[in-house]
Amino acid sequence: MICRILVVDDETGFTKLLKMNLEKTERYEVRVENDSTKALNAAHEFLPDVVLLDIVMPGMDGGDVAAQMQDDPLLQSIPVVMMTALVSQEETSQDAVAQAGAMNILPKPVNLEVLLRCLEEVLAKKN
């Protein structure tokens, strides 16, 4: 079964390569949204199985996107995996992130193997 993943990150190069890598496994269909303010619309349209969310983004940060998904009856059940290039634990464990219901936080650079395992675990839990 092919799972749908929505990637929300303003780093265009990174998302392009992430999409290529995930789709190469032929297990995932990936949609990329580089503008975080359009993330909720994209989620509504695409109805992904998982959302991969960057934390630091202009417009709306990952914490805000996750919080709004929590408030949205249609989206609140979709698991969220956060990705971040933030370095300090202090920053990554900010209340906003913790409260946003993110199931996992992955550090950037993301090891593909770790990411795929994480996605499998998250999807297994969801199902």
């Binding site: 190469k24 950037k108 993301v110 593909l112």
Partner: peptide, 24 residues
Amino acid sequence: AAGVAHEVKNPLALLLLGVEYLSG
């Protein structure tokens, strides 16, 4: 430093994904 590290980690993340893709 933290901000600069963040700015460097993003291209590093891209590089790692590139390596992952090509190493297959």
